[in-house]
Computed example of a mutant assay.
Amino acid sequence: MSQLPTLRQLQFLIALSEHGSFSRAAEAVFVTQPTLSAAIKELEMTLGTVLVERGARGAVLTHAGEAVLERAQRVMAEAEDLVIAAQAAGEPLSGPFRLGVIPTIAPFLLPKVLPTLRIKHPKLEVFLREDLTERLFDGLRERRLDAALVALPYESPLIETKSIWSDEFLFACTPDHPLAGSKTLDPSRLENEPLLLLEDGHCLRDHALAACSTGTARSDFAATSLHTLVHMVKSGLGATLLPRMAVDAGLVDQMGLEVMPFDPPVAGREIGVAWRKGSARAEEALQLGEAIRESLTGSGSAGEATG
């Protein structure tokens, strides 16, 4: 059997590609420059080709080096998954866990569920990243995140999801709005209503338009956050749809707005957990989603858990 590269050699090659010099790469992986240089030379001898062009201004990968680098990154990622899978099998939901959350969920959900998670899983270290869904999915695909809490439906290649909670939409307006105080509210009544929504890129905008497909959005008054949105409504610029999760968390408290539910069947969005297809932490992502669902059920928050 032919001699194979070692993971250490592949790690050094990746570091060299990232830092562009032997000295900086060696510093990044905590070895001396001669040690890293010798390992790269051994890797070149094992593969029978030159991987790095060495010069006074640094080190640049050859065409062969770039081809090897792409595979080296996949091998290292799989090796990391192997370690994670072994650790998770021994003690799931422990150690570092990189969790992404969209902005229309993070400030309203996390304060409710994180304290419970810490109690139930004291060895779990959650590192949070708040961002839009598409960028969170990029992070999942590129293995920078282990899981993400997002609003569904949202289809994306190589990403799997599971719904854990139903979050209905509520209609919010000023007390003098024609629909304020309505005993019944069907989405069809918003046919000519200029709704104020979040700017493009926020999945909540798409979900709100889907829930009230006959409504129209005033793009000239698109908001960047739900907090900005409710202030725009308070100023009389229009009405909007808000997730119950945000309302229950106090988003419109002391704002003097009318907030009304829609008639059944209730329009809304699903809160779900997402992970990279084939991820070694897929089972942990599901367990985390279940733990969050149980936390919400115990908190008495409005909404229904989904299977």
Rank of each mutant, 00 (worst) to 15 (best):
K123I: 00
P92L: 11
R205M: 04
E191V: 13
A148V: 11
L145E: 13
A106C: 03
A180L: 11
L198C: 02
T104W: 05
C212Q: 01
R135Y: 09
S213N: 02
I159Q: 04
L110T: 13
F97G: 06
E191C: 06
R144F: 14
D206V: 01
R218G: 00
E191R: 13
A88V: 05
E155C: 03
T174P: 01
D186L: 11
L114W: 10
K123S: 14
L170D: 02
D146E: 14
R189V: 10
R205P: 00
H177S: 09
P96V: 07
A172E: 08
A148K: 07
P153D: 13
A148R: 06
K123L: 12
E130V: 15
C212N: 01
A86D: 08
E142L: 13
S166V: 03
W165I: 10
R189A: 14
S182D: 06
E191S: 11
E160R: 11
C212W: 03
A211C: 02
E193W: 01
H207Y: 00
S213R: 01
E142Y: 14
R144E: 15
P96Y: 15
G95W: 11
A88R: 08
P115C: 10
G201S: 02
T161L: 04
L99H: 06
A151V: 13
K162L: 09
E193S: 01
A151T: 15
L185E: 11
P107M: 08
H121Y: 15
P92Q: 09
L204M: 06
